[in-house]
């Protein structure tokens, strides 16, 4: 136990830097992934068959490919060379978009049909209805699920060590590879991940309760 604490104290700078990179990567992932998910969700309900099929195909590919494989594909498999962080952001964003599109589609479909009819009776165009009526309410319904998914994506950033992104997991491994205190460093990494995810999911719970109060 003292050994673990000792390792944390000795390497705290490197570990905290790693955690910051993990958080940045999670931010990048959500920044690209959530709007992507919304676009896929809307395209998935499109009346044009081609748009719908493309959206469904992208969703299936995104959901079917493991994040580990997706990371390798974006990093090494495309002709453009991007930095590790950006590649990881894009790879995880693709996964995020595919998953959140399902969550958002559920949210959009939960908006009562009557409101859409009312909007069209008021002479609003389909796009205006979507933008002003359906999306705001649908996203609100989907918010708790989106937030818990974001927490999962934060954990998925731990896989970016495979493409040399200096995030928490890779820092922990790197330190352990030089002093061979593997077990201690993985425990430290576990605690640091848990600290972030547990507080994030506590926050999610509060938001969920708050939103459901008005339903």
């Amino acid at each position: 136990m003292t050994g673990i604490w000792q390792d944390f104290v000795t390497h705290q700078g490197q570990l905290i830097d790693g955690l910051i990179v993990s958080l940045q990567l999670a931010g990048l992932t959500l920044l690209f992934g959530l709007p992507g998910g919304l676009i896929l969700a809307i395209a998935g309900t499109s009346r044009t068959r081609l748009t719908r099929y493309v959206a469904i195909a992208l969703t299936e590919i995104g959901r079917g490919t493991p994040a580990l494989v997706m990371l390798q594909l974006v990093y090494n498999g495309i002709p453009v060379t991007l930095s590790g962080l950006l590649s990881a952001g894009i790879a995880l964003a693709l996964t995020t978009a595919a998953y959140t599109s399902e969550i958002m589609r559920g949210g959009l479909q939960a908006v009562p049909e009557g409101e859409i009819e009312a909007a069209s009776a008021l002479g609003m165009s389909r796009w205006d209805t979507l933008r002003d009526v359906v999306i705001p309410q649908g996203l609100r319904i989907a918010l708790p699920s989106l937030m818990s998914f974001s927490v999962i994506m934060f954990q998925a950033t731990s896989l970016a060590f495979t493409i040399a992104v200096p995030e928490l997991m890779s820092q922990a491994k790197s330190i352990a590879n030089s002093n061979f205190h593997y077990f201690n460093l993985f425990i430290i990494a576990a605690v640091m991940y848990a600290a972030i995810t547990i507080s994030a999911s506590a926050f999610t719970d509060r938001v969920e309760r708050r939103l459901s109060r008005h339903v």
């Binding site: 997991m169 593997y182 077990f183 993985f186 991940y193 848990a194 999911s201």
Partner: peptide, 22 residues
């Protein structure tokens, strides 16, 4: 639930594989 969910699977794998033998 919070503890298990809070730690990424990759870390659990390393801990379960290497932990007990420690």
């Amino acid at each position: 639930i919070e503890l298990v969910r809070g730690v990424p699977l990759i870390v659990w794998l390393f801990l379960i594989y290497n932990g007990p033998t420690q």
